[in-house]
């Protein structure tokens, strides 16, 4: 469903992605692991066209979405993204945050959206938080609202950029539970994460990024229990 071919990206003279090739099948959950600065976030931003790539190509259902001059908006509607720092709109209630894009992009009214949106909030335990503003919510609640906001566009694939890294430890669990739930519903997901246990438990595939390259990829059992590369072993020994 998603395919990256030799994707390269530089910022100034700094080569952040150095020929990344990766495929994600429908319903799969792929976890990107690696040290800070290894290119995980940039890779996700390139998939969502927030950053133009310098070389290579990104295909979504066979369509080259990295073509220069392509209108990015319709592509982004098919790809949901959640950020490390939540990035909720602080001047809107949780419900307005979630409704804005469906209202503007799909031209639906608040009334038409309300049943679906209420259902989403309820599903993720936020039914009593719909009228709250972001600064009235805990970090974990804000991040769950951000996930609901992305889901309201009914994306085909979801990208998660270290979404638990900014959370207090006791709030990480509630956000990971949301991911578990999405996984069980069959959502296609790509995560950049430092939650190794979580990745080992749920991912179909782990990609270890090192200096802008995929140093090693495979099922969690291989990466975590029998890593082939010395670099992978060195990284895992530091984080596990």
């Amino acid at each position: 469903m998603l395919e990256l071919r030799d994707v390269a990206k530089s910022f100034g003279g700094n080569r952040v992605l150095n020929g990344i090739s990766l495929t994600v099948e429908r319903g799969e959950m792929v976890c990107l692991i690696g040290a800070s600065g290894s290119g995980k976030s940039t890779l996700l931003r390139c998939i969502n066209l927030l950053e133009p790539i310098d070389d290579g190509a990104v295909f979504l259902d066979g369509q080259d979405i990295s073509e220069p001059g392509l209108n990015p908006d319709p592509v982004r509607r098919r790809i949901g993204m959640v950020f490390q720092s939540y990035n909720l709109f602080p001047h809107m209630t949780a419900e307005e945050n979630v409704m804005l894009a469906p209202r503007r992009v799909h031209g639906k009214t608040r009334e038409a959206l309300r049943p679906q949106v209420t259902e989403l909030f309820t599903r993720f335990g936020l039914a009593d938080r719909m009228q709250h503003y972001p600064d009235q919510l805990s970090g974990g609640q804000q991040q769950r609202v951000a996930i609901v906001r992305a889901l309201a566009m009914r994306p085909e694939i979801m990208l998660f950029d270290e979404i638990t890294s900014a959370l207090d430890p006791e709030l990480v669990g509630e956000v990971l539970d949301v991911l578990r739930q999405l996984r069980s519903e069959g959502m296609t997901m790509v995560l950049a994460t430092h939650e190794m246990k979580f990745a080992a438990e749920l991912a179909d595939k782990i990609c270890f990024l090192d200096a802008g390259r995929i140093a090693e990829q495979g099922p969690p059992s291989q990466i975590f229990e029998a890593p082939q590369k010395a670099r992978t072993r060195a990284f895992l020994s530091r984080v596990l």
Binding site: D73, R76, R77, N87, F89, L100, V105, A146
Partner: peptide, 24 residues
């Protein structure tokens, strides 16, 4: 990051300006 969040939802640049950036 506010513009990035709006863009990732597929909002057009003018909608991003009108509903996300300008009110703040």
């Amino acid at each position: 990051s506010q513009r990035a969040a709006a863009a990732s939802l597929g909002l057009s640049q003018s909608d991003t300006m009108r509903f996300v950036v300008l009110p703040q």
